[in-house]
Design a protein around this nucleic acid. Structure first.
Lengths: 191, 191
DNA sequence: CGTCTCGTTGAGAGTTTTCAATGTAAGTGG
DNA sequence: CCACTTACATTGAAAACTCTCAACGAGACG
């Protein structure tokens, strides 16, 4: 199971199996049931998480009580509030399991130790964050360029598997549409 | 002048002056006049850029011919399409000087060499991207949470200096408001 | 069977954009 | 220094988009 991380790391750098065996003890595994909360907004975001199986989403609740998803993570993704993580602030975001999920978790301190002890991993994380950062800018591009309707269909057409894996209202929440409006444009399209 | 990079790096890792002297030759300096184009959308985004002085913005032009800014960079920021940079794709974004600017530029290949030769810099870039990624998610939060009007005033109140440093329509373009609407809400607020 | 979650529908209201016209300040070449 | 041009900002009216609210429907699950 943990092999998934090994294979993922080896997509970007080359790491020996032996090193990997020494790396594994830095992590704990964790299982989450559907809808279980992993990190609560307002607490310190003390861990980084690698998804072995399942799906997480990171969200906040605005003053009107509406939940807004800013990020999903499925298999082979890392999930944390990296800014809070870096600055050791409290996080403004909660993280919750969308499905039953299986994770590797590492605390901030342990990750620091890990990177000190295995500096070749700096490159791995550098690339992970570089990709995440770049992808966030591309998402921003779509958010600005397209109408909500276009955003929705662009997303569902590009990620059809994912779109039917999670509830429709979460997709809406991720893309900034109300559930009612999602319904409306889907109905409009059908006709 | 290049010292700015040295000081910036030393905010995150510790690097000797001697190492820095060996690092500098990897970069070329470049001066840009106001409105000069640094990277053209559709070309390969072959360089990473560190702003010593001035201000850049990264934008794209949508099918209606409207320019949309996705990112600014002022002193001590790195600017590139990191996703294209990583994947060696063509970039969808152009980069242009907002003011007269002074940069350090490094090609993809040279940056690879640099990181191989000075692996302690992996950590520096890891942190840079981690912060950028985290900040992009926080921006996303505001884009979803607030109305355009709130977004605009939230931004100008939090970055008053920057807000008067660049033209108002660029702030609008960065936050996703038309210039007309920016005018309107500013007038509304004055009254 | 009852409850909870998710999706749908429709009307009305609010927000934001578009388009076209005008104003203004600043820069440039003569 | 003036006239001209360009870049940026403003205004108003109409249209388009998206949300809110309230109610209802359907399926899953205990």
């Amino acid at each position: 199971m943990e092999d998934k991380l090994f294979r993922h790391i080896n997509q970007y750098i080359s790491l020996s199996e032996e090193d990997f065996r020494n790396i594994i003890p830095f992590f704990e595994t964790k299982k989450l049931g559907k809808k279980e909360i992993l990190v609560q907004a307002g607490t310190s975001c003390s861990h980084n998480h690698f998804v072995l199986e399942g799906c997480l989403h990171m969200f906040f609740v605005n003053e009107k009580g509406v939940e807004r998803t800013v990020q999903f993570a499925i298999e082979n993704w890392w999930m944390a509030d990296f800014l809070a993580f870096q600055n050791k602030n409290q996080t403004e975001f909660s993280i919750q399991a969308v499905e039953e999920s299986h994770l590797l978790c590492i605390s901030y301190e342990k990750q620091e130790q890990l990177l000190t002890q295995f500096p070749q991993l700096e490159k791995y994380f550098r690339i992970i964050y570089q990709i995440g950062y770049g992808a966030a800018l591309v998402k921003m591009k779509f958010l600005f360029d397209l109408t909500k309707e276009e955003i929705y269909f662009h997303f569902t057409e590009n990620f059809p598997d994912f779109a039917q894996r999670v509830p429709q209202y979460l997709i809406g929440s991720f893309l900034g549409l109300t559930p009612e409006y999602v319904s409306e444009i889907r109905a409009k399209k059908r006709s």
